[in-house]
């Protein structure tokens, strides 16, 4: 409704939102269609439960998860992340100096579009930018240190609704659009898109795994996977998704991955942060 009004105004005023209208990118309409699809396909799944991935789809798995979540294996990573977060850099500054609200309870704001650089900044990228700005070496985006730090930052944000903004900036809209296209494009020897598994087949098995719904799929990041025997970042998960369809993984936090994270997180707006998560 609001958008219709905006669009009408834009057409009348010619200049108000010409890029949005011209590019055919309409995140709000996508959002509504995406939400409608999942809630209609899984009417018994409470909206906020989608963030629990495969556990929202399968009762037997859910019971094991509840047992594991009584004392989840990611607690060590949360502890480690807290310690890292609170330890000052060599110059005396801390992560708190780089983030809104001193870095506590901000996971839901990422990825964020950075108007200065014109790029999508995920939480992991923001952390490394912070490190580099303070003369520290960046962390490897796929490794345990980054997973631990993001685990702690997610932990302080639990329950906060995802709150991704797409400003009316052609670069932001283009990034969103590219992320959406990446999500729906088939690739790999199996010729699967992200959507083949996570839109068309949530709750079904692929080999032995129960597929998670795409709605809210990143709200649990980072995750402790039993298959890994440890924590992994969003990049690590996306790379293993590519490998699972026998495709070629991109480099961690490549523009494609950031964009798909931007798209998926926008689709999850309003759903609670549940990370760090535990997954099979």
């Amino acid at each position: 409704m609001l958008r219709k009004v905006c669009l009408a105004a834009a057409i009348v005023a010619v200049t108000a939102q010409p890029l949005l209208a011209a590019s055919g990118v309409d995140p709000q309409a996508d959002f509504k269609a995406f939400r409608k699809y999942f809630t209609e396909r899984f009417p018994k799944v409470p909206l906020n439960d989608f963030v629990n991935g495969p556990y929202s789809m399968d009762e037997g798995l859910r019971k094991q998860w509840k047992a594991i979540d009584e004392f989840p294996p990611y607690e060590f990573a949360v502890d480690q992340g807290k310690q890292m977060f609170e330890t000052p850099f060599k110059n005396g500054k801390t992560y708190a100096d780089c983030f809104p609200n001193k870095g506590i309870g901000v996971r839901q704001l990422y990825p964020m579009f950075d108007e200065k650089s014109g790029e999508v900044v995920t939480l992991d990228v923001a952390i490394n930018k912070c490190r580099e700005a303070n003369g520290e070496k960046p962390y490897d985006y796929s490794k345990d240190d980054m997973a631990a730090l993001t685990a702690y930052m997610a932990y302080t944000s639990r329950g906060k609704p995802m709150d991704i903004k797409i400003p009316n900036d052609p670069r932001a809209l283009a990034a969103y659009k590219a992320g959406e296209e990446y999500f729906y494009t088939r690739r790999g020897q199996l010729n699967f898109s992200c959507a083949s598994c996570h839109v068309q087949n949530p709750g079904n098995h692929i080999r032995s795994e129960v597929l998670a719904p795409a709605l809210g799929i990143l709200n649990a990041m980072p995750i402790y996977r039993s298959a890994w025997g440890g924590m992994g970042t969003t990049s690590r998960r996306l790379r293993s998704c590519n490998s699972q369809v026998r495709g070629t993984p991109l480099s961690a936090e490549s523009p494609e991955y950031r964009n798909v994270e931007y798209f998926l997180s926008y689709m999850a707006n309003g759903l609670p942060i549940s990370g760090p998560g535990a997954r099979p």
Partner: peptide, 14 residues
């Protein structure tokens, strides 16, 4: 014990 283990690496047993 679960009927189907989500992953054989971690099977909760009571």
């Amino acid at each position: 014990a679960p009927e189907i283990a989500e992953n054989g690496a971690v099977v909760p047993i009571t």
